[in-house]
Amino acid sequence: MAHIPDGVLSAPVLATGVAVTLAGCAIGLRALDHEKIPRTAMLSSVFFVASLVHFPVGPSSVHLILNGLVGVALGWTAFPAIVVALLLQAVLFGFGGLVVLGVNAMNMAVPALLCYALFAAIGRRDSRKLSILAAALAGGLGVILTALMVAGSLALSGKEFDAAARLTLFAHLPVMAIESAFTAAAVSLLLRVKPEFLGMPEPQEASYA
């Protein structure tokens, strides 16, 4: 699902994925000023490890994606963060293929970006509740959009969209619920202890050492 292996997608889909991912990375790296580097690395690590967290669902298990959280915290920089984490997952864990890295990154980073837009639109610095609600929505949205984009990639490569979408969406419902709760909890904690992490600085800018 989220990590598509090699040899499934058609060439135009692969090319589109690479193009979108390269463009996103270029914008993301430009936005990566040096105060954002530790945050980007940290969320890249979280994304990298999240795929190892399995939840038993029925006879099987699903794993976290957490692209909503990465998007909310990073914005455009989510692109390079996700590409690095996906590359390491492919090389070290064998999750997903190397040729489809572009498509996989697109399928997870574009939703992350939309989550960022959603969080920026709804979240408010002065309203904790609204921000947490926005985070919960973003956490769920990231998973749903990823599932839809995976189904779309498969459909454009000649698979049946209905079947693929049904499979990917249903399997992701529990992931969606868990990530929604997790993202909300993470954002709630961050708002309390380190609001500047979410691009919501406190009145006095923390001095940079």
């Binding site: 699902m1 989220a2 292996p5 669902v57 029925g58 699903v62 794993h63 499979l167 419902l173």
Partner: peptide, 14 residues
């Protein structure tokens, strides 16, 4: 959500 979904086993590597 967990009870609704008992789809064909899904994970990341088949």
């Amino acid at each position: 959500a967990l009870t609704i979904c008992a789809p064909p086993a899904l994970a990341h590597k088949l």
